[in-house]
Amino acid sequence: MKTFDYARADSPEAATREGGEKVRFIAGGTNLLDLMKLQVETPEKLIDITRLDLNEVEDTDEGGLRIGALVPNADLAAHPRVVKDYEVLSRALLAGASGQLRNKASTGGNLLQRTRCYYFYDTAVACNKREPGSGCPARDGFNRIHAVLGTSDKCIATHPGDMPVAMRALDAVIVTLKPDGDKRRISIHDFYRLPGDTPEIETVLESGELITHVELPAPPKGKQTYRKVRDRASYAFALVSVAAIVAVEDGKITNAQLGFGGLGPMPWRDATAEEMLVGKAPGKAAFEAAADALLADAQGFGSNDFKIPLARRTLIAVLRELTGVTA
């Protein structure tokens, strides 16, 4: 590990003021230190934000939830309001990592975890995300875990998180503080960026900008679930995952909010796929139309071709489960 300066921040304002290009905030450290050991990340300074007062989960006036950026994944998954009103979020968190890691991993850090692309982790090889302009060996190499939606010539990596997929389905808002004191409220739909020509830039966060909270709107209408398909029953990243909230009233689907993991460079959401469901009777025709819409532009790179039919089947299985319609 390259050495660095270390400072403990005593207020969010002080943390942002110390921020910068070669500076990293450290929360749980479970992703950052992993990458620093391999010298994939080589910050000159770490700002320890773990003692900041961003540890609460509070009700908002609108009936939603305001989650402090430092709330550990374990606590959020077990929080009474999350368990009762946001089952999809609790299930997504519980499907991620291990008990030990969830005790450390923070809400803010989870949103910003980096890809698990093997080449990104290996400093002996090229990778546009790690070393802009060096190339992307994954396109023609080992790409079983890579993306099939939203990729670019420069990068085909996925965002590996589970929690952010549920948050995307729930229309979360990310609240930040900038070094100049400005607060921003960024919809999760605008938070992540597609790789395009700059895969090294993953979010709209600016230098020194600190995530302070994540807000969830009032609980959505309908049943919720999170299904994660992976290589082993526990403690593995998603090949494909689906976060789903679906309501059926009088024989018609009246709400559909779908998030997808393992498919794209960011937690994925597709308005057209949801439109194929809302107003329709739950059943094979609507479910298949939604899957067709989701995967219309999907492109495999060889080893990950299987993700396209797997995503289709997983989505349909989840829709059947939530609507109770198996025909």
Partner: peptide
């Protein structure tokens, strides 16, 4: 593994289990 994958380094910090390899002593 020294990367949070195997759990051999698990200790309790303030009563909660964590991977001691993925956190800094100074923290």
């Amino acid at each position: 593994c020294d990367h949070g994958q195997c759990g051999a380094c698990t200790v309790l910090v303030n009563g909660r289990r964590i991977n001691s390899c993925l956190t800094l002593a100074v923290m």
